[in-house]
Design a protein around this nucleic acid. Structure first.
Lengths: 142, 142
DNA sequence: TATGTATGTAACAAACCTAGTTACACATAT
DNA sequence: ATATGTGTAACTAGGTTTGTTACATACATA
């Protein structure tokens, strides 16, 4: 169950920045494209900056900039910057420790979940922001 | 972000059933192992039964049973039975349709998300309930 | 240096989802 | 008939996400 849309918004923001790297873009400008509030954009830009994917300039003419070329930004990096990396959650309550299954199930599940999560991450790593930007441009031209 | 623990609970329930297929197990008995309320177990058993993974018997001596051998139940089936299959959510609000990026980003993202989700599913499919049951038994013996 | 601009972040509300709880109708074995 | 156990609805409490507002701070520029 996908509860957060932060990854989608983050990729949108980065694609927006990638489309014109000549100047900084204000959160207000980006928010208009995303269809949300500038503050929401700044919140996510905060995560992206902390992950080293963007930088920001204050004051007049300021805004957000891509910190490196879109070819060098993978979707995995974006995902890790803004989303919880646990795709599979364990029990909310602790299983009975007096039951053999209750005692042993979580580590077993964790390790199997880890292989699936790793496969997911590996696939995300295959796509770069450049790929997204290119596909968007192609779709827009059609 | 993993908001639901249904998959973990479902696997726990099925592992419990797999450990003793000779008789039906009551939701109360299973709930004690999981550490939750019998009604929560019955709710998830309902999903599992709808997916054809378990069956239930009413009345005295009743309870839940595995509908087939644990070797023939993959974790992917369990996941699909109880969880939303979209690991990556799109924007909550609709992006600006007057912006090229806003118009094109979602299908592009969807298709890239689909490859990552597929990789996740493929990995889950590699593990059967039997694998889980075996690992749990091994861990319990140690 | 003063001014205007844009960010970063906190605080709060609204909407939504999950899991726990209770209750009860219905099916089934004995 | 009776006791047992499921299936499901309804409700609550708790947590999370996003939208919104507000404001201190940093920076460019005149």
């Amino acid at each position: 169950m996908p509860t957060s849309s932060r990854f989608a918004v983050a990729v949108h923001i980065l694609t927006f920045l990638a489309a014109d790297r000549k100047r900084a873009h204000r959160s207000e400008e980006i928010a208009a494209s995303v269809g949300t509030n500038p503050s929401v954009v700044r919140r996510i830009l905060g995560d992206l900056a902390r992950a080293g994917l963007t930088s920001s300039q204050l004051g007049k003419g300021g805004g957000a900039l891509l910190a490196r070329g879109p070819k060098k930004i993978s979707l995995l990096e974006v995902f890790c910057a803004v989303e919880d990396q646990n795709l599979i959650a364990m029990h909310r309550t602790r299983p009975s420790q007096s039951c053999e299954i209750g005692r042993a199930i979580q580590p077993v599940l964790q390790s199997m979940a880890a292989t699936a999560e790793q496969a997911f991450f590996d696939a995300l790593e295959e796509h770069s922001l450049k790929d997204v930007a290119r596909s968007v441009k192609t779709a827009a031209a059609a």
